[in-house]
Simulated assay, not measured.
Amino acid sequence: MHRTRLILSALFFLVLPVATSPAGAEAAIGVAMDDFSYTDTSAEPANQTAAHERRLSAFMAALRRDIGADGRYRLAPSAQDGAAFKVIGGIQKTSTLVQWAKVAVIDVGAKKLVMDKLYTFRGDNDESWERAEIFVSREVMAALGTPAPVALAVFDFELEDTTAASAGASAASDASYLTEVTAGVREVLSQSGRYRIVEIGGEAAKAHALRDCNGCEASIAQKLGADQSLIGVVRRVSRTEYTLGFQVRDARTGAVLARGDSGLRMGADYSWKRGAVRLVSESLVESQ
């Protein structure tokens, strides 16, 4: 008998927040689950339909049992019956010894994929199906129990120059350094796993002086499909002194959720990126 082996190939992995009751105690999350489909493309001569139907039925019963047994979740008949998430999937037999299982979890309210993964498992017997179910159930529950990344619109950092330098004397180099600052901040936030950076384009990309628009960046971010907005400013105090600041707003309400200020720093223009990345990392990533 071949030893069962599961090989995980992640397509992408999104996650969701755990719901809480008004009193603050954790409430069970409603999870709806459709029966997985089954397809046999192995071209084996023997008809194994009955065996596959039995194993698939046992697989689904065990998956529902495992999720329902965890006090954090409750099984719901459908998304229309109060389910916060829906689990769908399918299994395909590709050869005598190889089967694929595609599993997805959907956030019903946000209409977003929480999890979309492809698994490969060897064998087509009761033992291999049971081991596959154990692995899949753990993956599904892990997806349901992890905080979701926030969709964040990070607008281009702006320069506030209070020096006596003539206007436009270093506009090209300033623009280049500001581009590096914005790219660095977007990268560190994306890599943290806490944020999903929303693409900014069109008129939003041409907007200037967002720092003086009294929170208009929040409504722009909402139109882009973001949950939150971030604007940042580099304030040049002298040719070798600068400060950095940023502000995060709720895209729907415009409320300020976080802000940070570096205080006076010494360094040439090329050090802006390093300072901004450190400030944002300490304020938005490490502090959480």
Rank of each mutant, 00 (worst) to 15 (best):
G232L: 06
E241N: 12
S238K: 08
V256I: 12
F246N: 11
G225Y: 03
D227Q: 09
K223L: 12
A226Y: 01
A221E: 02
V248T: 02
D250Q: 09
D250R: 09
F246A: 05
Q222E: 13
G232V: 00
V248W: 04
S238L: 02
V233M: 02
R239A: 10
A226F: 10
V256L: 00
T240H: 11
A221M: 11
Q228F: 05
T243S: 07
G245V: 07
A255S: 14
I220K: 10
A251C: 06
Q222D: 04
G254M: 01
T240W: 11
I220E: 06
G254R: 03
A251F: 08
L244S: 05
S238P: 14
T240Q: 13
I231H: 13
A221R: 07
I231V: 14
T243D: 00
Y242I: 09
L230H: 04
E241V: 07
A226I: 09
R236K: 15
G245R: 00
L230W: 04
G232F: 00
A251P: 15
F246M: 12
Q228H: 09
F246Q: 03
D250F: 06
I220Q: 05
G225V: 12
A221Y: 02
R249L: 14
D227Y: 10
R236A: 13
V233W: 02
S229D: 06
V233E: 06
R235W: 11
Q222L: 08
R239E: 15
V234K: 09
Q222G: 12
R235G: 13
Q247I: 06
V233I: 12
D227I: 02
V237D: 14
Q247G: 00
A226Q: 04
V237R: 14
V248F: 08
G225R: 09
A226G: 10
V234S: 09
L244Y: 07
A226E: 04
S229R: 01
R252P: 11
R235A: 14
R235E: 12
L244T: 04
R236F: 03
V233R: 04
S219L: 08
Y242C: 08
